[in-house]
Design a protein around this nucleic acid. Sequence first.
DNA 1: TAGTGGTCTAGACCACGAT
DNA 2: TCGTGGTCTAGACCACTAC
Lengths: 238, 238
Amino acid sequence: MKKYQYVAEKIRKRIEDGTYPPKKLIPNQIELAKEFNVSKITVKNALDHLARAGMVYKKSGLGTYVRDVSALVSAHDAPANAFNGLYHDSGAQHVASKVIKFEVSFPDEHVAKNLGIAKNEPVYEIIRLRLLDQKPFILEHTFMPVRLVPDLTNEILHKSIYQYIHHKLHLQFGGAYRKIHAAKASDYDIQYLGAKKDTPMLEIEQVVWLTTGSNIEYSKSRNLYNSRGYTVVDLNES
Amino acid sequence: MKKYQYVAEKIRKRIEDGTYPPKKLIPNQIELAKEFNVSKITVKNALDHLARAGMVYKKSGLGTYVRDVSALVSAHDAPANAFNGLYHDSGAQHVASKVIKFEVSFPDEHVAKNLGIAKNEPVYEIIRLRLLDQKPFILEHTFMPVRLVPDLTNEILHKSIYQYIHHKLHLQFGGAYRKIHAAKASDYDIQYLGAKKDTPMLEIEQVVWLTTGSNIEYSKSRNLYNSRGYTVVDLNES
DNA sequence: TAGTGGTCTAGACCACGAT
DNA sequence: TCGTGGTCTAGACCACTAC
């Protein structure tokens, strides 16, 4: 583990257990550097990571403060951190999947463009209903290049694609562009999620890429308006 | 301007004008350092900023590549950068506001908690209809502590609160927690945004804080499902 | 093996806010 | 003026990838 990660983790724990209470200053960078036997820059690096996660904020000339965790966030209706898939982030709850469609085809222009591949490169088209504690939760419509995710099977789809990508293929997610909007219920939503004709839906359209730079997924995920939201921490870097 | 900002800006421009084309390597950190007469670390700092903005990605052992800008992003239906307000980010389009409610009161428990203030501290309650090219666009319901935004007037509300906060009060936004979800149309949505009873709405609930650490705004903004989305770039920091 | 980006250091200096 | 965090440097060393 890198030093700055170790330091960040230690400080995070102290914030969470109240050793460093909200709105209070934490020790300055020099002191922390001494305590952890690292340089000031390594401490700064660790604090920058925590600041980007919204846990602390810094005032030049004064020090580093612990953020008072917003009521918005503590009401954690949706971690939506999204790189672990649903499999892990839902605590003790049980996640299962029903495979509605699992085919291979050539991508249409829109999919090819979003995956950054040629029109003659085969892609999986997958529609899955994700169930949380046996109840319909999210309907996913996913496209993935076959080349990047070889040997995908129905069995894997019933568990977690992300687990497979991570632990079997040893690929790392680099990031994602996400577009979130509201939508009217579709026939699929009505059939699988129990929506009615006038039930608002939340849709997350995303392109996910690997650390190698290749786009591995283009997908649209939909859920009922009252079953899940999406939370973001947005730092003003200007 | 800081050196790393200058370097980042230069590189960004070269990516945008095609000097550094997508999926290609850019010069390595040492070369860039020489060209700009800065240290390698300063170049790395600049590249890290660009990587967080989703413009480049780096592979240790290989080099730094230009990201192929996703179709999702280039279809820029919603920059939603949100710290300038609507006033500036809409290009040539005309933004106006209709003030529906502008009152001062004590906050209820929910608002007090999200603003991190006492229940006896006065807040503005503001409801504004934002119009884009004379057409109803977004309905904002905002709470702000009076202490942090003194002398707010109806006239300012007709223009831009954010402009006032920035340029008159000289306050800097530090960041925001945002929660995005879909919702059913309310009576307000029907009355002011032209929604029908079954029109899906997109709602962004947010807490905005200053660089001083104080929360300055708690608000909910709603728009018709087909008028605006929200885009995010999400980097996997693990 | 060579070349890349990543981490880390010690130390200098700057910008900022409080006093 | 003092103490804080921010920036920047030169240079060492590591981890990774390709050949």
